[in-house]
Structures are given as structure tokens and as C-alpha cells.
Amino acid sequence: MNESVEKILQNHPGAGRDSLIPILQEVQEHLGYLSQDAVVAIGKHLNLPTSKIFGVATFYNQFRFQAKGKYHIMVCRGTACHVKGSLKVLEAIQRKLKIVAGQTTRDGMFSIEVVACIGACGLAPVISVNGEFHANMTPDKVEKIIEACRRKDQENDAANAQP
């Protein structure tokens, strides 16, 4: 079992089901996602079935069950972005990466997260890749961004390979 999860649980002695969401948030903060082991450990600590915890966690967009990718793409689906066509942008990313929001590509390179509003409505539709904002997105533009990330990664690899 992950030590940080153990530590978080120790900080909630005698906790009941009302502590579930704060604990899930803390665990995700540490691990980047909710692993199966972590959910089982939380379940034991709070005396809750894993199915229940999974049910609660899937209710909220903020929780994910796969580790984040090397490039974490946050797609804003807030009102302004929605009006400006963010659904098309999200669909393009999902199609390109062959995963859906909440998942991570098998090579661990990309992950997608849907957020309600990043607070940059003037740039709508907006996405952020590892915290870096990209404004006025279109399906074409996001594909290029993804390809750029791949290229950058390959160049880095090549640079690291040469002593």
C-alpha cells in the first residue's frame, strides 16, 4: 500500500462516511488519481464498500482513476467555451488520442480532463496542456498541439540519448 495514502488515512482517525470526499481529494492530490488499492484502503478505513466509493467518486468530474499522462489536457466545457464550440474540440481530442475524458493513453503520454470553467472565458474555447493555456481552439488546432507535444517529446528523448 502506498505510504502517502496510509498517512492520509491516519490523519483521519475514526472518520465516518462524511469524510469520504475530503479523503478522496487528499488522496488524489498525492497520487494524481484514485488507484484501486487506494479506494480499497479508504473503504477499509471508513467501513464503506468499494462500489459505493466508486459510485460517489464517479459522480464528480474532479476524480480520475488512471494516472495522469505526461501531457495532461484540460478541456474547458464552461458556458462561454460551450457556446464557442468546445464540444467539437473535446471530440477532436478524444478522436485523436482514442481515449475519452478521464482516461490516459496506453503509452502514458496524454490524459484528458473535462473542467467546468478554467476562468478564461475571453479566450474561449480554451484548453490547457500541463497548465499552459491555448486560446480560440478548433478541432484542427488541437490536433496540431497534440502533434507538437509528441514531436517535442521525441526531440527530448533524442537529446537525452546522446551523451
Binding site: V39, I53, F54, G55, Y60
Partner: peptide
């Protein structure tokens, strides 16, 4: 008292499923 299934997801995507589907 087994709780192997519960509601998973939210809104129109809600379904009954097991832990981690």
C-alpha cells in the same frame, strides 16, 4: 449487506455498476 453494485456516474450517464466497472 454485500454492496457489490451501486449507481455509477451522474445525470444521463448514470448506470448501475460494480466498483471500477
Amino acid at each position: 449487506g454485500v454492496s457489490s453494485i451501486d449507481f455509477v456516474g451522474r445525470g444521463s450517464k448514470t448506470h448501475v455498476g460494480t466498483a471500477f466497472n
